[in-house]
């Protein structure tokens, strides 16, 4: 599988990526994320709900970080504020020094599922970003083809999304997000809806692609194995209100393969995360019991 992905198209993409990088900087220097003192509060029927509390986070260009935490801990909300969908109630989010005010093509999004345009073919989906950026139809199509071969779906360019399996749809989603040459890739539990085997394959696939692109990745997950396997750094969040409780460096060698999953280093990191999350879940239970 990995070998089939390795083809000349990849090099073409990378060359293109470098020439497209803003202000002549090398691609790897873009995508510095800074989250400073961010609170995110939603007004609900039961009064204000603090989804994220006092979040501080600095992500280096080209770093792969995972936001890990139990469901409902605000990790997706925090990522959505980086994406520009949710404005922080206080504090500031910046990308390469510029404040985030709205979504933009410099931050590619990959959603959990069903986010492809069902009325567009696979190729049209991937070509959408370049078209919006104002390149012509022909160039958009050729960019789309390049990225589709990158994720191994070149043969399906004329298929409609509803004819593809869940894993293939997510690969199209990744290709679509990358086709804008984003400096930051934001992934919101992108493999959460896939079966276990497919998920493992997709993780390796993603690392292969990222190794070539080296853009910044923020990956939201509640799966500890996934977080340890993928990331350079795991940012653990606690539940209500969502706070960052730990920042764990993952110094496992790359490229990473499935054999890593049983190594002692992997196990140690996994246990560290498990303990943190377990403690948080217990705290959450106790809070609920006191309240109830």
């Amino acid at each position: 599988m990995n070998e089939t992905l390795m083809n000349d198209n990849r090099l073409a993409v990378l060359d293109h990526s470098r020439t497209r990088a803003k202000s002549g900087k090398p691609g790897a220097e873009r995508g510095r994320i800074s989250v400073r003192d961010v609170d995110i509060v939603f007004d609900t029927a039961n009064g204000p709900h603090v989804a994220v509390k006092n979040a501080n986070l600095a992500v280096r260009p080209g770093e792969f970080i995972c936001l890990l935490g139990p469901s409902g801990c605000g990790k997706s909300t925090l990522m959505n504020s980086i994406a520009g969908f949710v404005p922080p109630s206080s504090g500031e989010v910046t990308i390469d020094g510029e404040a985030v005010t709205e979504p933009g093509p410099d931050r590619g999004m990959v959603f959990q599922q069903h986010s492809l345009f069902p009325w567009k073919t696979v190729k049209e989906n991937v070509a959408f970003g370049p078209l919006m950026a104002g390149v012509g139809q022909n160039e958009a199509n050729s960019v789309a083809r390049t990225f589709l071969s990158l994720v191994g779906l070149a043969a399906f360019e004329n298929a409609y999304p509803n004819t593809l399996s869940g894993g293939m749809q997510q690969r199209v989603g990744i290709a679509r997000a990358l086709a804008n040459y984003p400096s930051v890739l934001l992934m919101d539990e992108p493999f959460g809806a896939l079966d276990a085997q497919t998920r493992v394959m997709m993780q390796e696939n993603l690392l292969d692609i990222w190794r070539e692109f080296r853009n910044t990745v923020v990956f939201v997950t509640h799966d500890i194995d996934e977080a340890v396997f993928l990331s350079d750094r795991i940012v653990v969040m606690s539940a209500s209100p969502g706070r960052i409780i730990a920042d764990i460096d993952v110094k496992l060698p790359r490229p990473r393969e499935q054999s890593l999953l049983t190594s002692p280093e992997f196990m140690a990191l996994k246990r560290q995360c498990l303990d943190l999350i377990r403690q948080e879940t217990l705290n959450a239970f106790q809070q609920q019991n006191k309240a109830g």
Binding site: F85, E102, S115, F117, W119, F128, M132
Partner: peptide, 27 residues
């Protein structure tokens, strides 16, 4: 709404969202 968010993150303007997301979805 998810498709609108996807389109916005891909750089689509309001008009483009109407044309590429809202109308085909309503078709």
């Amino acid at each position: 709404g998810l498709l609108v968010r996807a389109a916005r993150s891909l750089g689509a303007s309001r008009t483009a969202i109407l044309w590429h997301v809202v109308l085909p979805g309503a078709m």
